[in-house]
Write a protein that binds this DNA or RNA. Structure first.
Lengths: 168, 168
DNA sequence: TTAAACTTTCAATATATATTGAAAGTTTTT
DNA sequence: AAAAACTTTCAATATATATTGAAAGTTTAA
């Protein structure tokens, strides 16, 4: 397989994976393109490479920046904006974990905390079932939250090292 | 807050979380409904409770069964099918992890394995960048895969216990 | 064997999400 | 101050995804 084809394959696969995980396919593809490109790219470059419109490229890039995955670069003597992605995979994973925690985990934890407080007759199966499910999910959410916290503070090698000690 | 309202809140929140993670909102809501209901429910019950059509209820239930999250129950002397969800949160998490690994992680790992093999001139920045990103992502995918494997074999208390030892 | 009770299918339709592109906005240069 | 070079916005539109509901299929009971 030649490099251009391989890049294309990667962009497609990354886009597909993204869309399966609730991330806009185009956003994942722009990210993928920047991951496999050594130079920073202009909006123009990205539009051309992925055959998308200016508006789409612009919004997607801003979105990627809000996720902390892409940054602007300015080249001396040029007005155009260039974009590049952090290529450190561990940083990417942490950044995604951080954002999803903030955007999705925190809100649901807030709701679960409310629901756990709901009082009722423990003898009543409907209440008991509700309470058990909500309480258990809340506990798991808190476990996930603590684990993410560890991950966010950790160095990659230490993190996976600790995980793999679990095998022994 | 009263139980019916609390149930409703839970169903909505679970549905929203699901849709953010690439899981059909209705599917997540049916799952949520079954999680907070002590009795097994009929298709009819679910249609009514969530105001969805028969076709939708039927397909969603089959989908949930294919994820291993819901099972059929037959009551003696009745023809109707009843559905109930496993309420063990750890089982749910493992089941979801197992399915997503099979459906999403495995396919992309296969592609990454191909892409890592692509040969090129290491001195060429375009190739070097591609190769580094793909290689690193491949390694991370393998780490995630091993971790999921551990999780799938593990007991809940052991798993979280091991995770939390990481804090020390 | 036919009717009733139930489940499944899937083309049509509705809804949600993503994309376009041209106009408006901004900054720099002349 | 006007033009040029660029970025942003957003209503209109296209696409993808989810849902409906009625017909077809299946199983059990009369």
């Amino acid at each position: 397989m030649e490099l251009p084809e391989a890049k294309q394959k990667f962009i497609e696969a990354w886009g597909k994976l993204g869309s399966e995980w609730g991330i806009n396919r185009t956003m994942a593809q722009v990210h993928a393109l920047l991951l496999v490109t050594s130079d920073a790219l202009t909006t123009e470059d990205i539009m051309e490479n992925l055959s998308i419109s200016r508006g789409n490229a612009n919004m997607t890039l801003r979105d990627l920046m809000s996720w902390g995955l892409v940054e602007k670069q300015h080249k001396a003597g040029e007005r155009k904006e260039y974009f590049f992605a952090d290529k450190n995979t561990w940083n990417i994973a942490r950044q995604v974990a951080k954002e999803r925690r903030k955007r999705e985990l925190e809100p649901i934890m807030k709701i679960l905390d409310e629901l756990v407080k709901v009082k009722g007759d423990t003898k009543h199966p409907e209440y008991a079932t509700f309470n058990k499910s909500v309480t258990d999910i809340n506990k798991m959410a808190k476990n996930v939250d603590r684990t993410l916290d560890t991950m966010l503070k950790a160095e990659e090698s230490w993190f996976w090292g600790s995980i793999f000690k679990m095998f022994k």
